[in-house]
Write a protein that binds this DNA or RNA. Structure first.
Length: 483
RNA sequence: GGUCCCAUCGUCUAGGGGUUAGGACGCGGGCCUCUCAAGCCUGAAACGCGGGUUCAAUUCCCGCUGGGACCGCCA
């Protein structure tokens, strides 16, 4: 059968191994692939690389799935589980790899290696000591089958060409050439017969008809090996794009020791998926001077050409800023929903049907970098302060007659029939004349009484939103406490 | 040690043979102002070094330096 089918369809995959959680680096790789697929109307596939039975943990697979769902990076294919697509699991695709190994044996591009692990270890040790390059010395490559020991386990190694070069025509890196003599006869199948990473990847990418591979540049050396598998088995390789890695502040690849964290932790901390995506996409990708992109814009603008070869260092302050932009710019209905969720989650407050929600959002949103902040700055509208900040009390209430003014204001507030911003403001202005003080000297005592702190939204709005009865009660409580 | 890659403000980046080297985060100052934010205005802040090529290099080439990635019967 001649393969004449045009493989112009974009098919990409994100292929994490469940040996850890989905962190910023993996999330960005997934995002790039997802955007590329969406941009070209192609397919985004999730493939869990769990061939290492000892290190792979099913719960980590679930964590990766949850992380991707949180980020809104839905995949388009997979075994159906309960009406939706599950990920492809390499652990369930043994047949495909076995067939691929068979094919490799038929083509004569693999050979048996009877070295034991110990043997390989000492070989490596000697190489390191002799400061020569560490690589399998191909000692079994040309041994005739008559040399094969009976009943001894063996691995299958790839018969790498010894001359010439392997060239990666990378969409991001450009042309990268490796001398074939530098490429190792890597193990294709372990002593127990199970196939290894590079081989499974190729088998899957061929089987899944992957058109483009977008991943970190840390895979570049693997690509040289994989390209040789494609060649040996007569398969067409996908287009490769190797992106510069994300680094920590110390310049090394971002990892757990930099505090690399599960994306689900970002959710807990109150970051929005769209903000996270916006932040992540700008790590190694840019479109002119633009910073904030809607998902639609991203899908429209994203392509491989904008991807960078160089590293990107994480900068969480920028994430904070972006997240805040998303919170502030969101539609009121959206803000209300976030606020209710956040109050429930972080403050255990049920604000359902509260008529003040929209107004509260207007004041809380510009003060919130995260949804957690949104809840925190809003809680004063629902619950009384559970403590008074001593510094604030001392400075604004106890010193300079704050208490006296607070008492005066309390009485005027009590007289108010209409308790809104206008009438409240009038009271403050009256008081300012009466006491001959700046507004500061009036607002702060009230603020402390209402919130327990020296910080809140504008005092008129705050009073009006807390309401007359509750405001009076809080001031009364404060007067009582500090009398 | 071997192989490969990278290099514009502190950070993310735009740019590209001739620019006052642009934007953003953060930082400083100011405006607004009842606090804190937000917003607006504004300031400081970068082409690693050395050779070429060229009338002209931050931009192209080479070297150096610095940094990184990879070198498992892990993925």
């Amino acid at each position: 059968m001649t393969n004449t089918s045009q493989k112009t369809d974009v098919r990409v995959r994100f292929a994490p191994s469940p040996t850890g959680f989905l962190h910023i680096g993996g999330a960005r790789t997934a995002l790039f692939n997802w955007l590329f697929a969406r941009h070209h109307g192609g397919r985004f596939i999730l493939r869990i690389e769990d061939t290492d039975r000892e290190r792979s943990r099913p719960e980590l697979t679930q964590g990766i799935i949850d992380g991707l769902r949180f980020l809104g990076l839905e995949w388009d294919e997979g075994p159906e589980i309960g009406g939706e697509y599950g990920p492809y699991l390499q652990s369930e695709r043994g047949d495909i790899y076995r067939a691929f190994v068979e094919k490799a044996i038929e083509k004569g591009c693999v050979y048996r290696c009877y070295c034991t692990k110990d043997e390989l270890d000492t070989m490596r040790k000697l190489q390191v000591e002799g400061k020569s390059r560490t690589a399998y010395d191909r000692r079994w490559r040309d041994r005739p089958s008559s040399d094969w020991p009976e009943d001894q386990p063996y691995t299958l190694r790839f018969k790498m060409p010894l001359e010439g070069e392997t060239v990666i025509e990378d969409r991001v890196q450009g042309r990268v050439a490796f001398q074939n003599e530098d490429l190792e006869d890597f193990i294709v199948a372990r002593a127990d017969g199970s196939p290894t990473y590079n081989f499974c990847v190729v088998a899957d990418d061929v089987n899944m008809r992957i058109s483009h591979v977008v991943r970190g540049v840390d895979h570049l050396a693997n690509t040289a090996l994989q390209l040789n598998i494609y060649k040996a088995l007569g398969c067409t390789p996908p287009t490769f794009s190797h992106v510069g890695l994300i680094h920590g502040p110390d310049g090394a690849k971002y990892s757990k020791r930099h505090g690399a964290v599960d994306v689900l932790e970002w959710r807990k901390a109150g970051y929005l998926p769209e903000a996270l995506r916006n932040y992540l996409v700008r790590l190694g990708w840019a479109h002119g001077d633009d910073e904030i992109f809607s998902t639609e814009e991203l899908i429209r603008l994203f392509d491989l050409d904008g991807l960078s070869k160089s590293k990107a260092v994480v900068n969480l302050e920028k994430l904070d800023w972006i997240n805040q932009q998303y919170i502030v710019e969101a539609a009121p209905a959206q803000q209300i929903q976030w606020l209710m969720q956040a109050l429930k989650e972080y403050e255990d407050i049920d604000a359902t049907d509260d008529s003040r929600l929209e107004e509260i959002c207007r004041h809380a949103a510009p003060r919130a970098k995260t949804l957690r902040d949104l809840a925190q700055t809003s809680r004063l509208f629902f619950v009384r302060p559970n403590e008074y900040e001593p510094k604030a009390v001392k400075k604004h209430v106890l010193k300079g007659g704050g208490l006296e003014r607070l008492k005066w204001l309390y009485e005027r507030f009590a007289d108010l029939d209409v308790f809104d911003e206008t009438s409240i403001e009038a009271v403050f202005e009256h008081a300012a004349n009466e006491f001959e003080v700046k507004l500061l000297k009036l607002a702060q005592p009230v603020r402390v009484a209402l919130t327990g702190t020296a910080v809140s939204p504008g005092i008129y709005e705050t009073l009006a939103l807390v309401g007359k009865d509750e405001s009076l009660e809080r001031i009364r409580l404060a007067l009582e406490t500090f009398a």
